Simulated scan of single mutants.
Amino acid sequence: MTKKTTVISHNGAVYDIAMGGWLQHLHSKTSDAILEISTDDIQLPDGKAVGTYKAEKKAEYKSNPQTPRSSAKQYLNDCSRRDFGHDWDKFIGLIKEQINSACVHLLIAPHPLSTPEQQEVLKAASNGHIAAMYWIGTALRNKQSDDCLRWLSMAHNRGHFGACHEMAVHFAASRNYIDSLRCLIISADGGCDIAYMSIFQISTLKNMFNIQEISLVENMLRELEGASHASSANYFKGMLMLFSNQRAEGISVLKRFLKEPKKKPPEYDIDEVYGNQIRLVSTFIESVLLDITTGTALLNSISTRGTQAGFCSFADYDEFVKIINDKHISG
């Protein structure tokens, strides 16, 4: 199955962003997620990336039909023992242990990192450590540096559940509202709860209407709607129609969205949080639709009903993160 991606251009740089699939570790422990390493990104002692080395050995195996090895994996193991002294899986496992041992304690350190410690995190991120990529990305976003996008996009494309939301916040601060909305929807559709609860906040809707070319919004929503089942793009599609005096069409889209306002996870992952979000969002949209029939101004309805629901804005998120970080550093 071909992986779906969308392209973002920002201040002369281009980023490919994965979309449509679930993010990793949505329901696992943080202690598990923080150990995740993208194996193909690991740099081997010979300077090659794991992905490159594996591809070369696979090609070598296929190009030699007379090889005595019974499989490409056996050939890889033989090459690994020759080049690195261990079977492949054991060798990769040892490297991952070394990477995690060197950096995980730094990612949760209750103090600002020294320059050597920051270099250790950078080394881990360059070797595929996903939480280290995210750590660097958020640190750079706090400095309002566009360099954060390289690391956050890398972390997102490797499954980090918060990275694309961080990109959305950065783009909004940079007034790149089209890509802020794009990243927010991708993050929400991937299962990020904080992104989903920001979708319906009125400031997000205002950001959408700050985009001058409505055709750009329509094309982007169409792309994301096609990439993910029950996409939050449908909410913005309905709202765009309502504010464009397409009342009947907009109401119809929102009523369809109400039937499944969030992509349903596997049965074993459905929890109380999912149920509460469905009820909260359904009540919000039903109330707005009711207000429309009684003549309440649409913007007033969205604002009032959104305040009642307590949806999260980007400013709320940044304030919350600052409180948590300050508390963490101070002990």
Rank of each mutant, 00 (worst) to 15 (best):
D32E: 13
L299M: 07
R305T: 04
T204D: 02
I302H: 04
N300L: 09
K264Y: 08
S198L: 04
G162S: 14
T67H: 06
V321G: 00
G226D: 05
L94E: 12
D147T: 11
A33P: 00
L205G: 00
S228W: 02
W135G: 07
K206I: 08
P116S: 11
N234Y: 11
S203Q: 15
G226M: 06
M167T: 00
T5H: 13
S70F: 02
R82P: 00
G85M: 12
I92Y: 07
A131S: 12
A188W: 10
G226E: 07
A172Y: 03
L299N: 06
E225M: 09
K96G: 04
N157C: 12
G275N: 12
V169S: 05
A18F: 13
M208N: 05
D271C: 03
C192Y: 13
V281N: 03
D147E: 14
T296D: 10
I95L: 12
F200T: 05
L76W: 01
K327A: 08
I92W: 05
G85W: 10
Y75V: 04
Y177G: 07
C148P: 00
L106K: 08
D271F: 07
L258V: 11
S282L: 06
K322A: 14
N300G: 05
R256C: 10
I42E: 04
S252T: 09
T52M: 03
I130A: 03
I194K: 12
V50R: 01
A188I: 11
K263Q: 09
I285A: 04
G191M: 07
A173Y: 12
H105S: 11
S231R: 09
D271I: 10
T283K: 11
C79A: 10
H328S: 13
N64H: 12
K264N: 06
T294C: 03
K123T: 14
N142G: 14
A33Y: 02
R305K: 14
N64A: 11
R82Y: 01
T2R: 10
A72N: 02
H27W: 02
L35T: 14
N219H: 07
P261S: 03
A132F: 08
F284S: 02
E60Y: 01
E117K: 05
G21E: 15
E319D: 14
S203P: 04
S80R: 01
N77I: 10
P65N: 02
P261D: 02
H156A: 13
M208F: 14
V217W: 01
M154Y: 15
Y317W: 07
D40M: 06
P116N: 09
V14P: 00
E218N: 05
T294E: 11
K90A: 06
F91C: 04
Q74W: 01
T30S: 10
L280Q: 13
E36L: 03
L298Q: 03
D269P: 02
L299Q: 09
Q74H: 03
G20E: 11
F200G: 01
D318F: 03
A248L: 05
C148K: 05
F171I: 15
T2H: 09
I323E: 10
E97F: 09
F200Y: 15
A125N: 10
K57F: 02
Q119D: 14
D271T: 09
D291W: 12
S126H: 08
R81L: 07
N77L: 06
G191L: 08
D271S: 04
G21Q: 14
S252P: 00
G238W: 06
F257T: 03
D78K: 01
V288N: 05
I130F: 00
D41C: 08
M239W: 04
I95N: 01
T6M: 07
